[in-house]
């Protein structure tokens, strides 16, 4: 036991020190940079206060990036968790070749994001890709559809690729959670005449409620900052339709040498994400309060 607070601090020190030096110190530098008119071509930046924030937020671009980021995050997290959950329910049944299927389902998650993106870019290709070849031979379309080149379909296409890569992670966690649900409760509900859906709603979901929340928060953070797939598939295009915070920050900083604005976007993105995370925590607290009397 760690009754002694100094012992606690000793246990915390290595990790806290490392995070302080290698994450907080650079991040604080970035926050400071966002108050300076810094760029590669301007080696002697001036302090400009919040002016850079005003400039950045005064452009329609920023709000498009914000909207895209929210759509991207909400859709990927929702789909990944819903699909992951149902796959977990399925894999929790007695099935032929169950062990094999459980292992196979993990494949997308272990592939590097860059590879997944190149693979999907090829699959989406209007002339050479598998998806359009299939649609054409099935007679569903006469000409390949350029999923990634149309601003109305690009975000959907990018989201699908990300869900394909991400759902195994959620499935794995839910599978584990389902295995920990009390068998007796489920059997009792069955004897009471509850159908599969009612058992799911009344017994299973409440039992793994916490897992769902933790999983949703974790995938939200990871998705919001996920860079590889969007960058390789579209680079934020076409016409800015898939530009999200991480791609924008990279493009500004490394593509156009605009460090100050990149820093401004970076700080803004942490603000947005922290806000989203705070909302989850509030929702969870409200939820537990409501549940307590039961």
């Amino acid at each position: 036991m760690l009754r002694d607070r100094w012992m606690s601090f000793a246990f915390l020190a290595p990790a806290v020190l490392l995070l302080g030096v290698f994450l907080y110190y650079p991040m604080i530098g970035t926050v400071i940079e966002s108050f300076y008119s810094t760029s590669f071509i301007n080696p002697n930046p001036a302090f400009v206060g919040f002016k850079q924030y005003e400039t950045v937020m005064g452009k329609a671009e920023f709000w498009q990036v914000l909207a895209n980021s929210l759509v991207w995050t909400v859709c990927v997290v929702a789909l990944q968790n819903v699909i992951g959950f149902f796959v977990a329910v399925l894999l929790n049944q007695a099935l032929p070749a169950q062990g094999l299927v459980r292992a196979v389902v993990l494949l997308p998650w272990v592939l590097p994001g860059v590879v997944v993106a190149i693979l999907w870019r090829f699959m989406y290709d209007p002339q050479l890709g598998l998806i359009n070849s299939f649609l054409i031979s099935a007679g569903l379309t006469t000409e390949g559809i350029a999923w990634l080149a149309d601003k109305t379909t690009a975000m959907g296409a990018v989201i699908l690729a990300a869900v394909w890569k991400g759902f195994p992670f959620s499935a794995l966690i839910y599978l584990a959670a389902l295995q920990s649900v009390d068998r007796e409760q489920i059997e009792a509900a069955t004897i009471d005449g509850a159908g599969a859906l009612r058992r799911l709603r009344d017994v299973v979901l409440p039992a793994i409620r916490n897992v769902i929340l933790v999983n949703v928060v974790l995938t939200t953070i990871l998705t919001f900052n996920y860079f590889d797939i969007v960058w390789v598939l579209t680079r934020g295009g076409p016409q800015g339709a898939t530009d999200i915070f991480p791609t924008k920050i990279y493009e500004l900083g490394f593509g156009q040498f605009r460090f100050g604005e990149a820093a401004t976007y970076g700080v803004a993105s942490i603000g947005v994400l922290a806000l989203v995370a705070a909302l989850y925590v509030l929702a969870q607290r409200a939820g537990s309060r409501r549940r307590r009397p039961v």
């Binding site: 290709d125 209007p126 002339q127 000409e143 390949g144 559809i145 350029a146 990634l148 149309d150 295009g237």
Partner: peptide, 11 residues
């Protein structure tokens, strides 16, 4: 070819 907005010279 359709898909100009995501096509490169390589494609």
């Amino acid at each position: 070819p359709q898909g100009i907005l995501n096509a490169s010279s390589g494609d």
